[in-house]
Design a protein around this nucleic acid. Structure first.
Lengths: 217, 217
DNA sequence: CCTCTTGTTGTACGATCGTTCAACAAGGAA
DNA sequence: TTCCTTGTTGAACGATCGTACAACAAGAGG
């Protein structure tokens, strides 16, 4: 004989808690990212996400007009977290260009970025790029910010009075370093046995050293 | 009044053509790749693929035990075509290590590899990597072959008598070059406006030149 | 010509997908 | 306390998914 849980009991736990739209949206975005990490592309279903968030299926469409908007919001959030992590690592370092760049590299080659699950999330977003205008727009915002961050640090490092004098093109250098970094990161995530994270950092630093030698000459 | 096309006409076009299992399998694999290029992850449905191949839905499961096996076969085929294209480019070049490496780079940064659709295909395969043993096995075969090809060319280029003497680690150099190459290729496919293919080739050649200088010293 | 093998078809099934919507209820306002 | 706003629920819909399977027929062998 049940003591509590009467059908219309006024007392006891409420069956759910109302939340401010902003908070709930954030929780749904976090749940989306978590599902992507755990299940990859197959985790991107309304039912999986709502279960992860501990919420009913219908709620998502109350806070987001459709699934694509939720995914785009998750993409934006995911990238923002990455950039924020890198930037705090840079700001914690000594304020010399080389130390800042080194901190950036080391942060790139350590948790939480260097993670197979994290790659799986990126890959899902990249896969949507071609067929979703929303994802394209978010990617564009994300990517330019990232390259400019790196570009700025490189420009500080290379001798300012020579950086436009032909022998080194900072734009191209930034593109190359981004590519080397991303490529190593991708390789490691796909096959962690091939090299150690420190070796990745060293490869990037060699590249940078190579750039400096060119400007000195 | 129809002249032909009687319900049970023995004459006229047959409603379908039987093919040898090997040929049909090849056609289905080709259709799978084509669908991936056109529609990305959403193109990976039995109905889309069978329509692309001009064949009924049921036929796929007559030639492949399930969808995963078809996709894995497509992955294997797709990679084999890539590697074959690169290798013929290398073999067409002069037989000096530097010319061969240059041909390899130029082939990497031109059609048909430098294509947004091609990236979309890779990305779909990568996305399956974590959750499909089959894809993991195929990837492992693919990747090691690719790195070894590059490793071999690098080892030929760097002075043989010094390549084990500390200052340059060929293994790490091959990993770095692979990463730079893949990263540039990835960047270009995601955002073709940021740099020109020739610039990508130049960045890779600078990296190689840098390696040679290190051995000479 | 008929027979037999088997590549091929297309319907059917159960599961799951994204989205809709009427009903419910939490919790502040009056 | 009662009212009202609105965050929340969960069933339901139509579409599409991968797979199974009985029936069909192409085409070689006799």
């Amino acid at each position: 004989m049940p003591v509590s849980a009467a059908p219309k009991a006024r007392v006891g736990k409420p069956r759910f808690e109302r939340q401010l739209p902003e908070q709930r949206r954030g929780a749904l975005i976090a749940a989306t990212i978590e599902c992507l990490k755990r299940y990859g592309h197959e985790g991107l279903s309304i039912r999986t996400i709502s279960a992860q968030a501990g919420v009913s299926v219908g709620l998502i469409n109350h806070h987001f007009p459709n699934k694509d908007e939720l995914v785009a919001a998750a993409y934006r959030q995911f990238n923002a977290e990455l950039v924020a992590g890198l930037q705090t690592a840079v700001e914690r370092a000594e304020r010399t260009p080389r130390a800042r760049l080194r901190a950036f590299l080391e942060a790139s080659f350590s948790e939480p970025n260097l993670d197979q699950d994290v790659l799986a999330v990126w890959v899902v977003f990249w896969g949507m790029y071609r067929h979703s205008r929303l994802i394209q727009r978010v990617h564009s915002e994300n990517y330019h910010g990232y390259v400019q961050l790196l570009h700025g640090m490189l420009a500080d490092l290379l001798k300012p009075e020579r950086r436009h004098e032909g022998s080194v093109d900072v734009r191209l250098a930034a593109i190359g370093l981004t590519a080397l970094l991303d490529g190593l990161w991708l390789e490691w995530c796909l096959e962690p046995a091939t090299f150690r994270p420190e070796e990745g950092v060293r490869l990037c630093e060699d590249w940078i050293e190579h750039l400096c030698r060119r400007t000195d000459r």
